[in-house]
Every structure is written in structure tokens, then in C-alpha cells.
Nucleic acid binder design. Structure first.
Lengths: 233, 233
DNA sequence: TGATAATGGTTTAGAAATGGATCAAAATAA
DNA sequence: TTATTTTGATCCATTTCTAAACCATTATCA
């Protein structure tokens, strides 16, 4: 056969491992068996295994077997956090927050609305103060999660907030916060809160989506600008 | 000379324990008997037992027996999250997964569909095997997240999967998986995948919501049953 | 009480299976 | 063609399994 098949085998195995077909700590089938299953010669398989070992997905103990190395959970956290792009983060919030609004309609109590209301007021007095606004904004979205009374969602949102509070994010975020944007955000926060108060789950979800869409657009604009600046420099 | 079957035996036993075949505090069969049942030498079994003891799943008292202990599985950080209830978890998935489907339509590639397809097939052949089905099901939902190419979403889903893999969940989950439910899940998985393939984000999201709704209902029914059982006892 | 059985722990020698290495021939790509 | 890669086969060194025995302690029961 021609070339290329060894890297195809590596790709196939990599997918199997990443997709969880071979669990961590589990032993892969013996190279002879595995080669037969994959319809490939043992030598070819070996080349693929060596490749994957270099990548750190496998560990082979001679005369014992080839094992899936444990992907350290903490490493996953770090890479997920460090490599998350602003748009990925917005997409994640797009998934979570509209549904959080729906759940708020079911579970929020009077005191939750009071907290959300006071946070809106705080943001409305911070039109010229991006730092204060950003803090209150984070608190507002966190308060929405809290109002669901769902510990898991609260935790997920808090994880996202942790990422958002990293340095590189904070700076970019403050850049996007001009007075016009803050006014728009404030309007959307109010609209969302009103929909929640009148117990309209879908309207609240829609308002939240509009809010996130605004945030996405301003983020993209900020990125374009920073690219443009980099090109100017 | 060298096989690694002791690690395979450990995997098999781990499955038996997680599937509830061996209940907590229950004594395992004598090592001689168990070894014979597994078709493996007693020494090999012992190596596996020692491994599982290290993992904290078993406790062996010399001359008495080997007992299933409370598994301190996944000692991960999520202390607050460990107390998440099944319904909280379903709500979180309600938030994440429909939107993940929408993003899949944008980002999934051919090989993603192939993986999802093969997982559907695997689940369809596991109608009478809840343990295998549950594993493939988790992988399926993870594969959906992977197909979004959004590392943050992938991470969030993996966190949810970790919770779901905790011992107390696994048992309840397997209880809810009768043949009828599995057939329904399989149908819904297929429908979701088909919607993704034909690039219809909203239909995929709707199918996923239906799927999660089914899961929620069967969970609630299982909880009612367990409450009823407790009241009978 | 005392005898017997049952259990986990340990050791041993031999057998079986595994990954590692090499090489000539075949197949493929350029 | 020419160069490269895969294949299939064989041998090797070593690990790990098997099988069987024996030990020490506990449990059971007469």
C-alpha cells in the first residue's frame, strides 16, 4: 500500500480515545488484535501508537500492553480556560442564560427581583464608569443564576465568570464598554427583568438573547479594531 | 509472558460494581469462586482487587472477605455540585444541549457525523444492555459537544458528565433504562442526528428538547418509585 | 472446648502472551 | 521508473498469567 495509512490509523485511534471509546486507564487490545481489527499490519499500527505516545495520549509498557493515559482533569480546566476565545464564551452564555431566564420565571422569589432591580439601578448610575458597570453586570448575571435555585447552573455560571474575570478578558471587556453600549445593556437588562417579573419565560429568554447578541457584536467590533491596531503598529 | 488481563479484569469488576451488580457493603464471592467465574487465575484476580482497593472501591478484610465500600469516585473539586439533584442536572442539560445542537449545525464536519452515527448504531445494538447503552449515550452527548469545536462548551459538558458518572447517579440511571425507554432514546438520537445532517438547527434543538423531556419524565418516575419503595419498607 | 472448613495471603515453576526489532517482498505514490 | 511505505513473517526478551501448593487466621459447628 502507499503512504498515509499510518497517519490515518493514528487519526482514527485519536478519535476513539478522545470520544471516550477507550476510557482512561483502560488497556487497548493487544497490538496483534488491534491491528487485525483495524485491517492494518502490526508495524503500521505500531507507528501510529508511537505517534500517539508522543502526543501523550497513550503509554505503552513493553510486554504488558498499551494504556490510555489519564487526561488530568485540571489540565483540561486550564486549557479550556486559557484557550477559550471571547466568541466561544459568548456561545456558552447563549446556551445557558436564556434557559436560566426561563427557570427564573419558575423559581425566582420576591427578594431575587429586588436584588436584580437594585443591580439594574446600580448599572444605570454607572454609565460613565465601565469598571463599576462591569462588576455589577457580572453580579446581575450571577444573580439570575442564583434565582434558579439550581446549584449546578449557579456553579456553571460562576465558572464562566471566573474565566471572564481573567486579566486579558477584563481589559477587552472594558474597551467595549462605551457609554452607548452601556445604555443599551441597561435597557436590555431592564427588559429582561420586566419579563421575568411578569412571568413570561419566552419573552425573558428572547430579551436575554438580544442582550447577548449585542454583546457578541460589540465584541466582534472590538476584535476587528484590535486587529486593525495591530496592523497599524 | 505478558498479558495485561489483570487490568481488564479490574475494568470488568469496576463495571459490575458501578452497575449495581455488587451492592455497597456487600461481600464479594470468595476469591477462588470469583476467579473461576471470571475465567481467570486467582493471582490475576487478586491483582485486580488490589487495584480496585487502591481506587477505593473495595475493602478486603483478610480471612473474612472483600467488601464493596462507598466509592470516593472522582474526588474532583465539585463539592457544591456533588449535591446536585437529578432534576437540576436535567435542567442544566436543557440549557446547554439544544444550543449545542444549533452550534453543531454550524461547525460539525463529516467525521463528526460518522462518529455520531456509529454511536447511534452501538446504542441500537445495546437495547438489552443498560450499562453499554449508558456508556455510549454519554459518549454521544459528549461527541455533540466536541462537534461544536467550542472548548468551553466541551468542558462544561464534560463536567456534567463527571457528575453523572458519580456512583449514586449511575445506579439510578441504569434503573430507568428499560427496553422501552432505550428504544425511545434511540429514536430521538437518530432524529436529532438527522436534523443536524440536514442542517436544520431549530429542528435539531427541538428533537434534543424532546429527548431531554423524556429523560426528565423517566427520572421523575424512578424517583417516585424509589420513594414508594422506601415507604413500603 | 476442639475439630474442621473456609478464607485471604504468599510462593513457586512453567506456560503463554506481549511489545520490540528486523527484513524481504509487495504496493503505492511521484 | 524510482522512492517510499505497508505488509507479512519471524525471532527475541521479558512480563504476566496460570496452576498448584502451602500458610495463617477466622468462622462454624459438633
Amino acid at each position: 500500500m502507499g503512504r498515509g495509512s499510518f497517519s490515518d490509523v493514528a487519526t482514527e485511534l485519536r478519535r476513539s480515545i478522545e470520544s471516550g471509546e477507550f476510557q482512561r486507564f483502560e488497556r487497548l487490545p493487544p497490538s496483534r488484535t488491534l491491528a487485525e481489527n483495524l485491517g492494518v499490519a502490526r508495524n503500521t499500527l505500531r507507528a501510529a501508537l508511537i505517534q500517539l505516545e508522543k502526543e501523550g495520549l497513550l503509554e505503552t509498557r513493553p510486554r504488558s500492553g498499551t494504556y490510555v493515559t489519564s487526561p488530568d482533569q485540571e489540565v483540561v480546566v486550564l486549557t479550556a480556560v486559557e484557550e477559550a476565545t471571547p466568541l466561544e464564551l459568548i456561545d456558552a452564555r447563549f446556551a445557558l442564560e436564556p434557559h436560566i431566564c426561563r427557570l427564573c420565571v419558575l423559581h425566582a422569589r420576591r427578594e431575587d427581583f429586588e436584588l436584580l432591580d437594585s443591580l439594574c439601578s446600580k448599572m444605570e448610575t454607572a454609565i460613565c464608569d465601565p469598571v463599576t458597570f462591569a462588576g455589577a453586570d457580572t453580579t446581575f448575571h450571577r444573580a439570575l443564576a442564583l434565582a434558579t435555585r439550581n446549584d449546578l447552573l449557579i456553579w456553571l455560571i460562576s465558572q464562566i465568570n471566573i474565566i471572564q474575570s481573567l486579566d486579558k478578558w477584563t481589559r477587552m471587556r472594558h474597551l467595549t464598554l462605551d457609554e452607548q453600549i452601556i445604555r443599551q445593556y441597561n435597557k436590555q437588562h431592564r427588559e429582561t427583568l420586566n419579563a421575568l417579573r411578569s412571568r413570561e419565560p419566552e419573552r425573558a429568554a428572547v430579551k436575554m438573547k438580544e442582550h447577548l447578541e449585542t454583546a457578541r457584536i460589540s465584541l466582534m467590533r472590538a476584535e476587528e479594531d484590535s486587529v486593525a491596531n495591530r496592523m497599524m503598529a
